[in-house]
Design a protein around this nucleic acid. Structure first.
Lengths: 153, 153
DNA sequence: ATAAAAAAAGAATTTTATTCTATATATTTT
DNA sequence: AAAATATATAGAATAAAATTCTTTTTTTAT
């Protein structure tokens, strides 16, 4: 599908605030609600807009410990890799999971309530996986930026 | 503020789909719209809900190259650290920025259109910063999980 | 230049958000 | 435990927005 400037502007607006009304968007774009409404539906249908989510302040919710875990596997056959990925992705503590280039195989973002929960996760879940080779953890002291790639034509 | 089970369920619903209507939530929670509406407003006021965003399919938008950059600084005085952070966070290509424990100082997530854009970013923006010590890049081959920490009481 | 297709406008309708008042539930105080 | 107070919910009314439909305008292709 071909997107034009209006579509891009709509995406940027929704990326900023997904609860913006069609009316507000229409005003900003100097259009009526109809075309804006139809374009949004189209972008949803095409899967360009994947979903709408609320960002929760995790500190206020008592989730204070976040870490990146760099993981290497013992073996690198497709079977082992797939199995390991499926397993780690099933853990609630793992909020993001990447397959990366370089000296490690996986990068996991783990978010838990406290150090005790972290230790419990490592001992009872992660270290149980037989494919696991090495794990190197770097804790997040602070996140200073959280944004989305600028969408351009 | 003290949150009860209803608040948590509302947060989880909004985290799943921020465009869900109060009516739908009310139905799922066996409540009327009034308490749901008021609770959402309260959660927004308190900053527990930080914002609502649309998740855009970046592959479809032509953003195909993502990488993690591990950065160490030459000097570690507060002044240098703060300055560096402010500078990198101002770059559009840097979508996430972390201060981390361990052998490196910063972890940046960089998202760009292609390798050319990546190289341009490194040459014209990152490497220009005088505080920069070392940079180690790991490219993201695939992201297999993207979720949010389970909110519990 | 004309015909066909796509996009937008405008109006009408349905649905939802929001406010207000009344009722019920829970909490605190005595 | 009962009364008083505060908190939460229900229900109804209103305002605003979403959604649909028809007409007009703009764009595109011939």
């Amino acid at each position: 599908m071909k997107l034009d400037t209006t579509d891009i502007r709509i995406l940027n607006l929704l990326q900023e605030n997904s609860r913006i009304t069609t009316k507000e968007m229409a005003k900003k774009l100097s259009l009526t609600t109809t075309p804006v409404f139809e374009r949004v539906k189209k972008l949803e249908r095409e899967g360009i807009i994947e979903k709408y989510v609320a960002i929760i302040n995790q500190k206020k919710m008592g989730i204070i410990l976040s870490a990146f875990l760099f993981i290497s596997l013992k073996e690198h056959t497709r079977r082992h890799i797939d199995k390991f990925q499926k397993d780690v992705d099933s853990f609630d503590e793992v909020t993001e999971s990447f397959h990366i280039t370089g000296e490690n195989d996986f990068l996991l973002k783990v978010e838990v309530k406290d150090m005790e929960a972290y230790q419990k996760f490592v001992f009872t879940k992660l270290s149980v996986l037989t494919q696991l080779g090495s794990v190197k953890t770097q804790f997040i002291l602070a996140q200073t930026k959280q944004s989305f790639p600028n969408i351009e034509l």
